[in-house]
Design a binder for these strands. Sequence first.
DNA 1: TAGATTGTTAATCGATTAACAATC
DNA 2: TAGATTGTTAATCGATTAACAATC
Lengths: 207, 207
Amino acid sequence: MKKMISQATIDRLPLYFRTLRLLEDEKISIVSSEELGRRLDITPEQIRKDLATFGQFGRKGIGYDVHDLKEKLANILGLHNRWRLAIVGVGHLGGALANYVNFASLGFSVVALFDNNPKIIGTQVNGIKINAASQMKRIFASKEVDIGVITVPASEAQAVADLLVDAGVKGIWNFAPTKLNVPLIIPLINEDLSIGLSALSYYMTQE
Amino acid sequence: MKKMISQATIDRLPLYFRTLRLLEDEKISIVSSEELGRRLDITPEQIRKDLATFGQFGRKGIGYDVHDLKEKLANILGLHNRWRLAIVGVGHLGGALANYVNFASLGFSVVALFDNNPKIIGTQVNGIKINAASQMKRIFASKEVDIGVITVPASEAQAVADLLVDAGVKGIWNFAPTKLNVPLIIPLINEDLSIGLSALSYYMTQE
DNA sequence: TAGATTGTTAATCGATTAACAATC
DNA sequence: TAGATTGTTAATCGATTAACAATC
């Protein structure tokens, strides 16, 4: 990582990107931070500050070119990379992710599936064969996998993470509700669904 | 909401709760903020500060009683409420959530499913019948639904949110990648999976 | 020119970290 | 008592918001 940019800023970039796409669909070619902010419930100052972190993308008195800014954000986010995913743990959630259409539109594709349940090894999901975890290293090489998605139970997640690291994974997207230890150079994003649901429960409990 | 407590603090409480559960399973009855911090990669000071927001739960020189603190956190988070969920949009993700076991262990249960696809209305997922969205109000009353889970495409999400609010939903868990407008009194948690994946792409792009 | 809007610097706000008295 | 550990106050850090000069 070149420079330290706040997590909050990084997490807002996909929202800007998404909105610019919609604006492009609406044939709107110029947008102000004011309008972007209105669509996203984010202050215009915040948006300008976030964008200014990466360069000068707008024109004073005018606004931002929708197509141009969209492409620049795609570049910053690395969405032109056509990342290849492997999903480890083809239960309900893993299976759903294997079929998830939104990924494709962001440039991600699922190229491999792994599971240790002998009953499903060899079967296919969305046209992709499920392999035993022991095949990971071999398949990672042939399929050029970039990202490992962990959708196994928490108790097995660390072992899977170790296998992924050993197979040369470049990044990990973890859905198991547990802390993982992986080398610092490998980006890891935790997607713990129980946090959001518990937070919702908390807010519903406050009268 | 009685008092303003930071989102960051609320989001860490489920982690503490989860870890206390594991400690209880390990028959460990007393834990220090130091040990909790080690297991979660959170500083002990942060943990003490978070807990102190809600009261004095520990004993100086000793630590925290595992069972006691676990129960107190469950109460704060409202996890004793046995919340009842309705999932709107039974595609791959909605279907996966309908089968998600981790919910049950936190006290949530899925009691109703809705979809507008005539091909699947009337069929069952995990023993729960799929209804047309038009039935929402009636079914919310009879099934005493608390939480609405939105797993429809972004373009339909606002309409679904409106239906949920009209049916008297108490909280919304939104998986559609779009900003929703709902009355301020109704807690809304957004679970936008494309943010995490895009952030991962960003970090993998920085060399 | 007048009005609009960016990019950037300064001010404010809030969250994390450090320090330490209290006490088991 | 000495060692451990909490709860809380003070210091620091970082993120958001406000203000405004530059300029289209």
